[in-house]
Design a protein around this nucleic acid. Structure first.
Length: 268
DNA sequence: ATTATATCCTGATCGC
DNA sequence: TGCGATCAGGATATAA
């Protein structure tokens, strides 16, 4: 489940490999990726690769058609973007292939939830929610966003129209780190708790990026290597194991049809 | 307006 | 051993 750290990892790895290269051909193998019209990419140079929320954003320069293009790739559950210096046959679940003047970029996606979207400007491609790694993400701004929120904080953290980039794994981890119960109403957090939530979000996401993300089952980075942050998870998928802080057993509950993991001893 | 539910997919796992 | 049911969770559309 590629969340912010996994997507950031992929974008950072792809940027130096792709920027400056020219696309010779884009071949889409899964018709689900052809929502609307797929523009011609041949002859376009990659100008920039970055992360936009949970999506990888690729900026292509002009080609046969003179305007530049932006593509967002959402990995959803099982999507992978793999860079290869030289083509290799027989890749299972290959859904799209970008051939470049040197090397190739493969989009592999077992469950086919991933999406491609094409834009004529970067503004159209930018998400509405605030990015927790941006400078604009401050305790005060977070407090503003939370104000009046009636949802449970765990569910609130998953809303991409508020904050972008959090998914089921990091939402649980961040709440544990901030010692906040996942059941608390979002708007009920006191300013001290908001401050802890802010600090925990930053710390955990940055730490996860250092470890190239979490591989729970499927995730691989652009090199085809698994992340290692799963070794540092405090609560996710650790139900019935002991909390490292208070030794009580970690619980799994279901909120909005999603698993939440937390410690009833130290999350209030 | 907000929140819950169904849907999209596939593969791993589970119980019988 | 095999088979159907269930689960995993990203986001969106639709229902309540």
């Amino acid at each position: 489940m590629p969340e912010l750290p996994e997507v950031e990892t992929v974008a950072r790895q792809l940027a130096p490999r792709l920027v400056g290269r020219t696309v010779s051909r884009l071949r889409i193998l899964d018709p689900l990726l052809r929502n609307g019209r797929t523009p011609r990419l041949s002859g376009r140079k990659v100008r920039e690769v970055s992360r936009s929320g949970k999506q990888v954003l690729i900026h292509f320069g002009p080609g046969a058609v003179r305007y530049p293009l932006w593509l967002t790739i959402h990995l959803r559950m099982t999507g992978r973007l793999i860079w290869r210096e030289r083509p290799q046959p027989g890749t299972p679940h290959l859904r799209a292939r970008f051939a470049l003047d040197r090397g190739e970029l493969l989009f592999i996606d077992t469950r086919r939830f991933g999406t491609f979207r094409w834009y004529r400007s970067p503004e159209e491609a930018s998400p509405v929610g605030l990015d927790p790694l941006e400078a604009a993400f401050t305790p005060a701004r977070l407090a503003e966003l939370l104000a009046g929120g009636r949802q449970a904080i765990k569910a609130w953290l998953l809303r991409q129209d508020r904050l972008v980039g959090l998914g089921n794994i990091y939402a649980s981890e961040i709440l544990y780190s901030a010692r906040i119960s996942p059941f608390r109403e979002a708007g009920s957090l006191r300013s001290q708790e908001v401050a802890r939530l802010h600090k925990s979000a930053r710390r955990i996401l940055e730490r996860a990026i250092v470890h190239c993300g979490t591989t729970f089952s499927d995730f691989q980075d652009a090199r085809g290597i698994e992340g290692s942050y799963q070794h540092f998870l405090a609560v996710y998928d650790r139900d019935d194991r002991r909390c490292r802080r208070c030794r009580r057993s970690i619980q799994r509950v279901v909120q909005q049809q999603r698993s939440t993991f937390y410690c009833p001893g130290c999350q209030r």
